[in-house]
Every structure is written in C-alpha cells, then in structure tokens.
Amino acid sequence: MGLNVINLVGRAGADPQVRYFDSGKVLCELSLAVGRRSSKTDPPDWFKLKIWNKTAEIAANFVRKGGLIGIQGELVIETWTDRNTGANRSSPVIVVDKLELLGSKRDNDSGSINSYQEADEF
C-alpha cells in the first residue's frame, strides 16, 4: 500500500496562470511559498502547483499573489528532454485535489475559510 498526500499552507507567489483546452478541461498553474516552522529567518520553500477543472477556475478567480491558501494534493515528478541540450530534466509538481482560501476578512470578502475539491478526473 502506498500513500502520496501532501498538505501545505502558504502564500501564492504570483497570480495564477490559466489555460483552457479544446476538450473543456482547465489548468491553473501557480507557485506557492511555504515558510518553515523551525526558522523565521530562512527563505521559504517554493512549490509548483497544478490545479485542474472547476477548482482551477476557482483558483483563477479568487487567488492572487500574496494570498494565503491551503492545498492538499499529490507529489508528481514531471520528466522531459531539454530541447537545447538533449539532457533529461525533472521537476517536482504538486497536483492539487483540494484548495482552501484562507486569510483575514480583508483578504476574503466573506471572512471565512472556503474549501473546494476536484470531483472529476483530469
């Protein structure tokens, strides 16, 4: 039995980048900065997020650079061949299943935590 679940809370590093496909699927890509509990002076860890479909649309509409969000997803290692050098490359990516909009009342009109979970396959 295997388990691949990641939970993170952090701040959006930039506004979301959204792509719409002819198939009707939607992809939102976003960076997430997560500070370490052990040290307030160390720089944050950065994570690349991929969010699909309805949850992607919600992220595109409500997440902004600096906004506090919580995510749950799985770690995927994407691999490709560099076009210029022909070298094999890889990058860790979090494929998000659940998105929570966190923050103060000023950050979020309703002032509450809003949770969104992808119900369909991507």
Rank of each mutant, 00 (worst) to 15 (best):
M1R: 11
L3I: 00
N4A: 13
V5W: 04
V5R: 13
L8I: 01
V9C: 01
G10Q: 06
A12S: 13
A14N: 15
A14Y: 01
D15H: 10
V18C: 05
V18Q: 09
D22M: 00
D22K: 11
G24D: 12
K25L: 10
L27H: 03
E29R: 03
E29K: 02
S31T: 13
S31A: 13
S31G: 11
A33N: 11
S38Y: 07
D42A: 07
D42S: 09
P44C: 13
K48Q: 07
I58Y: 01
F62C: 04
V63E: 07
K65S: 08
G67Y: 14
G70F: 02
G70M: 01
L75N: 02
V76C: 02
W80E: 10
W80F: 14
T81Q: 15
D82S: 12
D82V: 01
R83V: 00
R83W: 00
N84C: 00
T85I: 04
G86W: 06
A87V: 02
A87T: 05
A87N: 09
R89T: 02
R89N: 14
S90N: 12
S91T: 12
S91N: 10
P92N: 10
V95S: 11
K98E: 12
L99R: 07
L99E: 10
E100C: 04
S104L: 05
R106T: 14
D107P: 06
D109Q: 13
S110K: 10
G111D: 11
I113F: 07
N114D: 15
N114F: 03
S115C: 08
Y116R: 06
A119L: 08
A119S: 11
E121G: 08
E121Y: 01
